[in-house]
């Protein structure tokens, strides 16, 4: 029996997410069936590609309400890359498109030139540091989140042109810097953990994140 459902909507390398789950002892099934998803103790929403196209596919497969309902159940949920962005209210990718609205905020594009006139390659492709975010003058703790045990400034693998801007900054777990912008690179709120980077592509420290999330799933 699978513990985790990886939502299949034809976006991204689902195989490597499955391998990462298995590596930390979480049997995972790639599926878009409602019964599979509700029977699982944790759900991963992956994603590579375009926001509007992804929302369209989720709608066609009847997955939009299902994801929102699953999150409301309070079971562990992880969004990765585009799977994080889709949790927001809207994206400015191409023309504006509406997301799953779990979080208020927009998804917006990196500038190709920063305020000092330096130009940046878009998408950001490669390794970047994640650092503890601050809220109300205090550093946010990573304890009891999937980032527990990570070094402040650990490197993770990113591929993206857009980043999330949550209205409620309390949810921001880590920040990263690119193109002169400090942005939200992971967030945590109740049962939801989401990251802009790909932990399944971030070598041993990325697998640690899966390991911590597996503990959360198993203890649920």
């Amino acid at each position: 029996m699978h513990k985790v459902a990886i939502i299949d909507y034809d976006m991204g390398n689902l195989f490597s997410i499955q391998q990462a789950c298995e590596n930390v002892g979480l049997p995972a099934k790639i599926t878009c069936l409602k019964s599979d998803i509700f029977r699982s103790s944790g759900v991963i929403l992956p994603g590579v590609g375009a926001f509007a196209e992804a929302m369209k596919t989720l709608q066609e497969r009847g997955l939009v309400d299902l994801i929102v309902d699953y999150i409301k159940l309070g079971k562990p949920f992880m969004g990765i890359c585009l799977g994080m962005q889709l949790l927001f209210s809207e994206s400015e990718e191409f023309s504006k498109s509406k997301g799953l609205s779990i979080f208020s905020g927009i998804v917006t594009k990196f500038p190709t030139v920063n305020n000092k006139g330096n130009s940046y390659k878009i998408p950001q492709v490669g390794w970047n540091m994640i650092k503890r975010s601050r809220y109300g003058g205090n550093e946010i703790s990573w304890d009891r989140t999937p980032l527990e045990g990570q070094k402040n400034g650990e490197f993770m693998y990113f591929v993206h042109s857009y980043y999330c801007k949550p209205v409620d900054e309390k949810v921001i777990l880590s920040v990263s810097n690119y193109a002169g912008i400090k942005y939200c690179s992971s967030l945590s709120w109740r049962n939801v953990f989401a990251c802009q980077f790909h932990p399944e592509k971030s070598a041993k420290m990325g697998l640690e994140i899966y390991g911590k999330w597996a503990q959360i799933v198993k203890s649920y």
């Binding site: 195989f15 490597s16 391998q19 990462a20 590596n23 693998y157 592509k201 971030s202 697998l207």
Partner: peptide
């Protein structure tokens, strides 16, 4: 490779 190696 994909089973053992977790980088792109």
């Amino acid at each position: 490779t994909a089973k053992e190696i977790f980088i792109p």
